[in-house]
Write a protein that binds this DNA or RNA. Structure first.
Lengths: 116, 116
DNA sequence: GGCAAACGATACGGTAGCGTAACGAAACGC
DNA sequence: GCGTTTCGTTACGCTACCGTATCGTTTGCC
C-alpha cells in the first residue's frame, strides 16, 4: 500500500485510478457528482439538499440534478422528512455502497501497483 | 503522508480531494478530461489523438473535443507533426503543468490531513 | 498516377449539465 | 388566520458532452 506519497506519485495514483475508472465504468459521473456521492456515504446522516449545497459550495439545483441522475443509476434515494415535510432526506442504497466499495478497492489496488 | 491506506481511508482521501477541487476550481473538468490530461503529462511523449483514444478506450471525437476544451483553458496545445502531416502532436503547457502541480499538492495535503 | 488506408476534425441529433429565476408546499411568527 | 421565510423542485435559455457517421488531407502501395 502507498507509503510516503510524493506529489508525483500522488498524481500517478490519480492517473491510474481515473484512467481505469474511465475504461471500465460506463457511468462516467461528473467530479461534482462524485463529490456529492462521497459526501453522502462518508459523512454521518442526515443529508439534505441544502446541506449538501452549502457543504460543497454549489447551488441547490446542482444537487437536485445530481440526485436525479444518481437516483436513476440507483446510487442514492430520497425520502420526505416526516418531521419537517419541507425537507428531503437523502438515503444510501446497496448499489451505491457497492459502487464506492469497488472504487475504494480500485484505489488501493492501483496505489499498491503505484509504489510496487 | 498517507501510510498503509485502507479502502475506507482511500475513499476518504478521494472525498477530501474531490470536494476541495469542486469548491475551489471553477473549471470542473470531466473525469475523462482529467484522465486525458494526466495521461498527457505523466506518460512520455509523443501523444496523438489516436494513441490517447486507444489508451483510454474511447472514440477519437472524445479526444478531439477534450483537447478543444482543455486547449481553450490553456492546459494543452496541438501541433501538426511535420514528419507525418496526418498526425497531430499534443503538447504540454506551463499552465497545464501548474494545474496538475496544484492537484498533486492538494492530494498530498489532504492525504496528510486524512491520516493525521 | 491512382487507389486504398490512416489520421484528425467536423456534422448531426440527442442528452445532460450549467446559472438564474420563479414556483408550490410546508413551517414559523405574531 | 395570514404574511414571511425556508424547503426542494421546476422552468428557461444556454453550453458542452455523447456516439455514429462522414469529411478532407496526407501517406503508402503498386
Amino acid at each position: 500500500m502507498p507509503v510516503d506519497l510524493t506529489p508525483s506519485q500522488a498524481l500517478g495514483l490519480w492517473h491510474e485510478v481515473t484512467s481505469q475508472q474511465v475504461q471500465q465504468d460506463g457511468r462516467d459521473l461528473t467530479l461534482r457528482q462524485l463529490a456529492i456521492l462521497l459526501e453522502i456515504y462518508l459523512v454521518p446522516p442526515p443529508h439534505t439538499v441544502r446541506g449538501l449545497a452549502s457543504k460543497l459550495g454549489v447551488t441547490k439545483p446542482v444537487i437536485t440534478r445530481a440526485l436525479d441522475t444518481m437516483g436513476d443509476l440507483g446510487l442514492v434515494t430520497r425520502m420526505r422528512d416526516d418531521r419537517d415535510r419541507r425537507n428531503v432526506i437523502i438515503k444510501r442504497t446497496v448499489d451505491g455502497a457497492l459502487y464506492l466499495e469497488r472504487l475504494g478497492d480500485l484505489i488501493i489496488a492501483r496505489g499498491r501497483a503505484q509504489t510496487a
